[in-house]
């Protein structure tokens, strides 16, 4: 594999952070492979997104205005990949990223690696490093047997760094194809907020929160103080206190924030597998004999309802000193 193509996910031109990480990583890998770094951006707002991408170290930014749901993106990535002859496609390991990456891989018959946290390049070959079985094992898989390959990168693991590249904007010719999927409407249920996968600080609440309120008050305040996101255990989600998108764990999201705060969460194995790769784990629990004591860097034993508001105050104060 020689070239690297970052698929760019955006909403009306506002690019997702994981895609900026992909764009930055595309350059690093392209340099190692001796090829070019490309970006593909599709749909409503693609023009605006392309302008943002000019601040990233890309050789070419390929643009398509076609808005066919998923198909348009897969067709565009396919067209660019085939034009380069040989390429690794980077997508974010997000809902849309997975859809585009998986469809492309099946279409061109190439390998695909999911939830990639590191790369190794050697002699023009690309290997991906991925935690599997909930981080129990770290696997390395080589992409082989095709001039193409796909890597879905875990958000928040690779850096997004602005450094201008050549940034040549290239228009992808329209495919003239019809949509196979019709989008009838789109409904926003929650204010667009930072997702737990992408936040560098996640403040999660569990059954110990006792009800829905803390998720919009004390936990939210603490998360806001860090500029982070609110997460939850399955117990809290199943109780209906917070929506499923916030769930961390085996049947929720697998995340790697820099700081994970587990508040009123016991740390069951199914929760642990979703957050064990966090850089630092801090827990507050009124019980010192909980599973999370075995893997948190710090467990403070006390009442979360009393500690969290105090903590938020102190964090705000500390941040204000630096500001």
């Amino acid at each position: 594999m020689q070239n690297v193509i970052a698929f760019i996910e955006h909403k009306h031109g506002a690019i997702r952070r994981s895609s900026l990480e992909a764009a930055t990583q595309a350059r690093t890998l392209a340099d190692q492979l001796g090829g070019k770094a490309h970006a593909v951006v599709v749909g409503d707002g693609a023009q605006q997104a392309a302008q943002t991408l000019k601040r990233y170290p890309l050789d070419q930014i390929h643009l398509s205005d076609e808005d066919r749901f998923v198909d348009g993106a897969v067709d565009a990535v396919e067209a660019v990949a085939k034009a380069t002859g040989s390429a690794l496609v980077l997508v974010g390991n997000t809902m849309i990223g997975r859809d585009v990456g998986s469809r492309f891989a099946a279409r061109v018959d190439c390998g695909i690696n999911a939830d990639v946290v590191d790369f190794k390049t050697e002699g023009g070959e690309v290997s991906c490093v991925m935690p599997k079985l909930g981080g129990l094992v770290i696997t390395t898989c080589k992409l082989t047997g095709s001039p193409f390959g796909v890597a879905a990168i875990r958000p928040n693991v690779f850096a997004a760094k602005e450094t201008s590249g050549a940034g040549e904007i290239v228009q992808i010719p329209s495919s003239g194809k019809a949509s196979t999927v019709t989008v009838e409407d789109e409904v926003e249920e929650a204010a667009a907020e930072l997702g737990v996968e992408e936040a560098s600080v996640v403040v999660s609440g569990g059954r110990g929160m006792g009800g829905p309120e803390p998720f919009t008050t004390i936990l939210k305040d603490l998360a806001d103080a860090f500029g982070g996101a609110v997460g939850a255990s399955r117990a809290a989600v199943d109780a209906g206190w917070v929506s499923h998108g916030h769930q961390v764990g085996q049947t929720g999201k697998t995340i790697s924030p820099q700081l994970y705060l587990a508040i009123g969460i016991s740390g069951a194995i199914q929760h642990k597998v979703g957050m064990r790769t966090s850089e630092t784990i801090v827990a507050i629990n009124k019980d010192g004999n909980v599973p999370i004591a075995e893997f948190a860097d710090l467990l403070v034993v006390g009442d979360a309802f009393a500690i969290v508001p105090e903590l938020t105050k102190l964090v705000r104060d500390a941040k204000a000193v630096h500001a």
């Binding site: 790769t277 860097d297 710090l298």
Partner: peptide
């Protein structure tokens, strides 16, 4: 087309302070 070349056990998270 994605061939497993290595399988490693990640470093165990040490027990922190309580």
């Amino acid at each position: 087309k994605a061939q497993l070349t290595d399988l490693a056990t990640p470093p165990v998270r040490a027990k922190g302070q309580v």
